[in-house]
């Protein structure tokens, strides 16, 4: 009987895995076959075209890169410092418990809500859509991710290491900068990469904030094109040249996220090898 149950569970697990992998493979296959069809050097050199004429995604790619980087630049220091506070200073203080709770809520909040929030407090107040508002929305999404990974990674640093540093006469801030951060470095960098991967594909928050821009624009105070919104708009359009570009854009985003995730995994593996090394 037990053997039967074991067998049944194994079969179910294998089935589920197969279904999952098959879906993933199908998605990737569709993406790659359609995406490559739309991919050409123009994609990287020309602006998004009006319906029916030829063009590329250059302004959207630029906008995505700029807003993602800006989002990380604004969001990660906040996440990093708050995570440091939680792990190193206020482990059990009521403030920390509150921050952790809010962070968990933020972490699982639908990104469209965050888009609406930034729309309300930035776009409505300023009176127009802008790249900066987009970056702020992305930052709000990046904060909880970096905060959580930072706290987790700092908690993994052995207490003995901190004690040893203190025992040499190091003040806490010095221990933090010279010992704890370096010990958690690859973990924190991994968290940053994952945060970048996470926000570089976000559509909903940008829809409400940066919107889109058909033209080349580097003005942070004006609407800015970006891949997710362009994909959203072009894929739903009836024009085949737009649809092709949408596929190409989707392929670009997916590949970027995939590469970032692989890099993050690689860093994590290195981290583990380091930990295990010499013991």
């Amino acid at each position: 009987m037990r053997r039967f149950r074991n067998g049944a569970f194994l079969a179910l697990a294998v089935l589920a895995t197969t279904i999952g992998l098959a879906c993933l493979a199908a998605i990737l296959w569709t993406l790659v076959s359609h995406g490559f069809a739309g991919l050409s050097s123009q994609v990287f050199t020309q602006m998004t075209p009006p319906p029916g004429s030829r063009g590329g995604l250059l302004n959207a790619i630029y906008g995505s890169v700029v807003m993602t980087l800006l989002g990380i630049l604004i969001g990660s220091p906040i996440g990093l410092l708050a995570g440091t506070y939680l792990a190193e200073y206020g482990r059990r203080s009521p403030l920390s418990t509150t921050i952790r709770f809010i962070n968990d809520v933020l972490l699982s909040a639908p990104s469209i809500i965050i888009g609406l929030f930034v729309y309300q407090i930035v776009v409505v107040r300023v009176g127009h859509f802008s790249a900066l508002a987009g970056a702020i929305a992305l930052a709000v999404i990046a904060i909880p991710v970096t905060l959580r990974t930072t706290e987790d990674m700092l908690n993994l640093v052995p207490a003995g290491m901190k004690d040893a540093s203190a025992a040499l006469g190091a003040y806490p801030w010095r221990t933090l900068i010279s010992v704890i951060y370096p010990a958690a470095r690859s973990g924190i960098v991994t968290g940053l990469l994952l945060a970048i991967a996470r926000i570089s594909g976000e559509t909903a928050p940008l829809l409400f904030t940066a919107l889109n821009n058909q033209f080349w624009s580097t003005d942070l105070n004006a609407p800015m094109a970006n891949l997710p919104v362009v994909i959203f708009q072009f894929a739903l359009s009836p024009y085949t040249n737009w649809q092709d570009l949408a596929w190409a854009g989707a392929l670009i985003i997916t590949t970027t996220i995939l590469l970032l995730s692989i890099l993050a995994r690689f860093l994590l593996a290195m981290l583990q090898a380091q930990r295990g090394g010499g013991r």
Binding site: P158, G160, M161, D163, A164, S165, A166, A167, L168, G169, A170, Y171, S178, V179, P182, A183, R185
Partner: peptide, 19 residues
């Protein structure tokens, strides 16, 4: 205390090399 710990060295049970 920082100055004190500088003068009083301590070695722990588990080796704690810094990164």
């Amino acid at each position: 205390v920082a100055d004190l710990r500088y003068r009083i060295g301590m070695v722990f049970q588990r080796p704690t090399p810094f990164p």
